[in-house]
Amino acid sequence: MLEVLAQGAFAEPMASITLAHYLVLSGAMFVLGLVGFVTRRNLIIMFLCTEMMFQASGLALVAFARYSMNLDGQTFVIFVLTVAAAEAAMGLALVVLLFRKQESLSAEVWNQLKG
């Protein structure tokens, strides 16, 4: 049943999309997120970049789950979404707190601690 659902459902043009396509997209999202995190200085953008890296993992998990016919991977994605939501709630609360303190969203203003 599962096999039928997995392999039989695509119409002809879609059938050529393989695991590799998903992995390339997921890898690209991950790397873009990483590059964004390293190069951007706006706290919200940096946070969104880490979210993008999370979702890249989610995409890879779904693709692998379907490829290996093991739905554990899809369960994993649900949990990843939940954790990402918790992290987003915390991250945005933190950003609001920091903005009140410094009136700026730049990561550069937080530079007291060094040595």
Partner: peptide
């Protein structure tokens, strides 16, 4: 703020790693 942002980055890394481990072995 430093801890949170780098922590989120670290979490993204090991999550991506976990997803590839799942992909490479087909098991969680």
């Amino acid at each position: 703020v430093k801890y949170f942002f780098l922590g989120a980055l670290g979490a993204a890394f090991f999550l991506f790693g976990f997803s590839l481990i799942f992909g490479g072995t087909g098991a969680t």
